[in-house]
Design a protein around this nucleic acid. Structure first.
Length: 220
DNA sequence: ATCCCGAGGG
DNA sequence: CCCTCTGGAT
């Protein structure tokens, strides 16, 4: 089989997966709470190795105390640390939040930049965070958000053989229409939480089981 | 013990 | 590639 038709097969499969997941999760949206692009950026930095539910428990108090980039840039770092502590990695996260906000104030007029390259200059921001902010704050589909769920499900479904998230993203982008890139990530995240869990995937009630090479077909 | 919408450094 | 950063939930 040629590389072109193998990709065609995977593309067909990816589109079928997306169609089914759109039906299963018709109202899937970004589950982080925020009012502004800066707040979404901060919430996304906090979401590293942490559930969104936990992030949403700390951000109301954080944004009440420090509502924008200027406030976070001028904050006492230890106060940020205290407010975000329960999300884990709290010293790095506080430092990155403040560092990113200072750069936003000094270089970008207090607004989150809309260019991928500029976002990647911010401390604590790599492609995953940049993709989330661009897609949900600005409606810009610069890439495919690859978090732990998107990586795991894309691998299990046989759409990538990579484990490095940047390589997973490169494999996924040509398989999906650009306008569906964030739809893909959001639905896979929902499905990863509800069905295709890391430890005990519920293959017996998965609507993608017939398409999935990783499904446990053994009968007990 | 393992995982959660990661990123940076070696 | 590897390791570290960190707390909470299961």
């Amino acid at each position: 089989m040629s590389g072109t038709s193998r990709r065609g097969f995977k593309r067909q499969k990816a589109l079928e997966i997306l169609t089914r997941l759109k039906r299963l999760y018709p109202d899937a949206i970004c589950s982080l709470k925020y009012d502004t692009p800066v707040q979404l950026l901060v919430a996304t930095i906090l979401s590293a190795q942490c559930t969104d539910e936990r992030v949403n428990k700390v951000t109301p108090a954080l944004f009440d105390r420090f509502p924008d980039a200027a406030a976070l840039a001028g904050a006492d770092i230890s106060e940020i640390e205290t407010l975000v502590r329960s999300t884990g990695f709290y010293r790095n996260k506080a430092k990155n939040i403040q560092g990113a906000c200072r750069a936003i104030v000094e270089k970008f007029g207090g607004q989150v930049p809309k260019q991928m390259e500029q976002l990647l200059e911010l401390p604590g921001v790599a492609r995953k965070t940049a993709n989330v902010v661009l897609a949900h704050a600005y409606g810009i589909n610069a890439g495919v958000t690859v978090d732990t769920h998107v990586k795991r499900l894309s691998y299990r479904l046989g759409l990538t053989s990579q484990t490095n998230p940047v390589k997973v993203e490169r494999d996924l982008m040509p398989l999906l229409p650009q306008e569906d890139w964030e739809n893909w990530s959001i639905r896979l995240i929902y499905h990863g939480r509800a069905v295709c869990a890391a430890r005990k995937p519920a293959c017996d009630r998965c609507i993608l089981a017939d398409l999935c090479p990783s499904v446990d077909r053994t009968v007990s």
